[in-house]
């Protein structure tokens, strides 16, 4: 029951991170905590077999495990996003890692939304944190 709440809190922390306490790192850690709760309560294959209803092949080493491979890809994708967000500003002539933001008015329900480019950087950090922590947790628990 706690897992969805943890996930929602982690995502809200992630989204507000560029101008309030929170951000990609702390959001990522909290998301990892939600996954780890499931792994502690069930096992590494529960998400695939129990939730997604997939077959889980067994017998290969933990490094070749499909879940671990996915986490490693996530880490890599995060690094690419982080670097990309840094280079993004350089294309239009700003220094590395320069960020900007726009205010959008007249949006239904929200009325005003602030779109910050720092969110892209935070998304990269989020992916790196979730990917690397879950890789470590699943490999160490698989030993």
């Amino acid at each position: 029951m706690t897992v969805p709440i943890v996930l929602v809190v982690s995502i809200s922390l992630f989204l507000q991170g560029h101008n309030l306490p929170g951000g990609g790192f702390i959001g990522g850690v909290l998301t990892t905590a939600a996954f780890v709760l499931i792994y502690v309560a069930y096992n590494l294959d529960f998400l695939e077999s129990g939730v997604l209803g997939r077959e889980v092949e067994t017998g290969t080493s933990i490094f070749e495990h499909r879940t671990v491979t996915a986490y490693r890809r996530m880490l890599l994708a995060g690094l690419v996003v982080v670097l990309g967000s840094g280079f993004g500003g350089m294309i239009i002539g700003d220094p590395f890692l320069t960020q900007g933001y726009v205010h959008l008015d007249g949006i239904p329900i929200y009325h005003e939304v602030e779109l910050a480019s720092a969110l892209v950087f935070d998304l990269g950090v989020y992916l790196v944190v979730v990917g690397s922590l879950l890789t470590i947790v699943s490999v160490v628990s698989g030993e």
């Binding site: 890599l76 690419v80 670097l83 840094g86 280079f87 350089m90 220094p95």
Partner: peptide, 21 residues
């Protein structure tokens, strides 16, 4: 002045590329 950060960007990009490959 971009040259100041260039070595750092080259080496970090190489690290990510080698990880991807």
């Amino acid at each position: 002045s971009r040259l100041v950060i260039a070595p750092l960007l080259v080496v970090v990009t190489t690290a990510v590329l080698t990880l991807a490959l």
